[in-house]
């Protein structure tokens, strides 16, 4: 893959990959790592993509795999999500609102001063990872269940089940919040 092509793909898809990574990891630093790892794999790949949609789906798949790899280790499995474990001070340090806005830690972000926007991310963070990606791809990226099944390499029925379950859990989480 030549430099121009890579830079074009990176510019077009960076936000999307970052959103997926952040919704999975809940931490800006981890999302950074996942994004870099994903794009490094893009560089290492043969780079023969049919079209832009093909690249996008490939990046989504790789990003989710990277997120899963990150949490597959023993240490990560035993570390709870920031929303469950962090004290108020720690929470200020790893504020998802800051992360979402791309701002520096400790800086006030007017957008995520709105609690409801912060709540969704925190609620997503409390769901199992397999449900997060399905919800994100369905509600934000606008993929249909058949397309999500293709991207995630699972059956369509599985996607529908995850969607129903995820929606239910998410509503419960949002109510609790």
């Amino acid at each position: 893959m030549d430099r121009t092509e890579y830079e074009k793909i990176a510019e077009e898809n960076l936000d999307m990959v970052y959103r997926i990574a952040l919704s999975h990891t809940g931490k800006e630093a981890d999302a950074d790592d996942v994004v870099q790892q994903t794009f490094y794999k893009l560089l290492a790949s043969p780079g023969k993509f049919a079209d832009e949609e093909h690249v996008k789906r490939w990046l989504i798949r790789v990003c989710i795999n990277e997120c899963n790899s990150m949490f597959s280790g023993f240490w990560r499995k035993n570390v709870q999500m920031f929303s469950q474990m962090a004290s108020r001070e720690e929470k200020a340090e790893y504020d998802p609102g800051q992360a979402l806005s791309g701002g520096e830690y400790g800086q006030e972000d007017p957008v995520f001063a709105q609690q409801e926007k912060r709540e969704l991310l925190e609620a997503l963070g409390n769901l199992p990872p397999v449900l997060r990606s399905v919800l994100y791809l369905f509600y934000y990226e606008g993929y249909k269940t058949r397309e999500i099944a293709q991207i995630l390499h699972v059956r369509e029925a599985t996607v529908r089940t995850r969607l129903v379950r995820g929606r239910k859990l998410l509503r419960e989480e949002l109510k609790e919040a």
């Binding site: 952040l22 979402l100 934000y140």
Partner: peptide
């Protein structure tokens, strides 16, 4: 809700720089 939340999500500028540097 998803749209409102994630529309505000943008990768930090320094991350874009890091990704470009990978090349």
């Amino acid at each position: 809700k998803f749209k409102q939340t994630f529309d505000e999500v943008h990768a930090p500028e320094d991350l874009l720089g890091k990704v470009m540097e990978l090349n």
